[in-house]
Amino acid sequence: MNIISLFQKVDIATKIKNAPDSGYQIGVVIGSFIPFLILGGIALWMYKRVKKETKTVINL
């Protein structure tokens, strides 16, 4: 997988304007939010893991 492909700009407004129907528009919007949700989930998991480890170290 090319790293360059991860940084390509995607013009969501153009995709929605050229959408064949409303289902495609919803898919584009959901697809644009998925990476942020995944990163947020990973950050939350890391936060809870560190918090749990800190709690066990303090109790020793």
Rank of each mutant, 00 (worst) to 15 (best):
P35N: 02
V50M: 04
K17W: 01
I34K: 14
I42F: 01
N59Y: 10
P20L: 00
G23N: 15
L60K: 14
I4H: 07
K17E: 11
K17L: 03
A19M: 11
N18T: 04
K9W: 10
K51E: 10
A19L: 08
I12D: 05
W45H: 01
A19T: 10
G41Y: 00
V10R: 14
I42V: 14
G31I: 06
P20F: 00
L44W: 02
A19Q: 11
I34T: 14
K52G: 00
I26N: 10
K55V: 02
K52S: 05
I4D: 12
K15D: 15
N59W: 04
I12H: 05
F33M: 12
E53H: 06
G27R: 10
I34R: 10
I30D: 02
A19V: 05
I42N: 01
S5D: 13
I30Q: 09
Q25F: 04
N2W: 01
M46Y: 08
N18S: 11
V10H: 09
Q8M: 06
E53N: 08
S22H: 07
K52A: 09
L6C: 11
A13N: 07
I26A: 13
I12Q: 11
K48G: 04
S32G: 13
P20R: 09
W45Q: 02
A43F: 04
T54R: 03
Q8N: 10
L6E: 09
P35S: 02
K48F: 12
G40C: 05
K55D: 11
G27L: 09
I12G: 02
N59R: 14
F33S: 11
I4G: 04
L60M: 13
N59S: 14
Q8T: 10
T56A: 14
I42D: 01
S32D: 15
K17A: 11
V50W: 00
L39D: 03
L44Y: 09
L60N: 15
L6Y: 08
I38W: 00
F36N: 07
K52M: 03
S32M: 12
G27H: 06
K48D: 14
Q8V: 05
L39W: 02
K17I: 00
L6V: 01
I26T: 14
T14G: 11
K48Q: 12
I38Q: 03
W45G: 02
V57S: 06
V50N: 05
L39S: 09
Q8C: 01
M1V: 10
D21I: 07
N59C: 06
L44E: 04
G31E: 06
N59Q: 15
A43L: 09
E53L: 10
M46K: 10
Y47Q: 05
K48E: 13
K52R: 06
Y24F: 15
K15A: 13
G27P: 05
A43M: 06
L37K: 05
G31L: 09
G23C: 04
G40M: 09
I12F: 06
N2Y: 02
K15P: 09
Y24T: 13
N2Q: 05
I30V: 15
K55R: 06
Y47K: 08
R49E: 13
L37M: 12
F33Q: 13
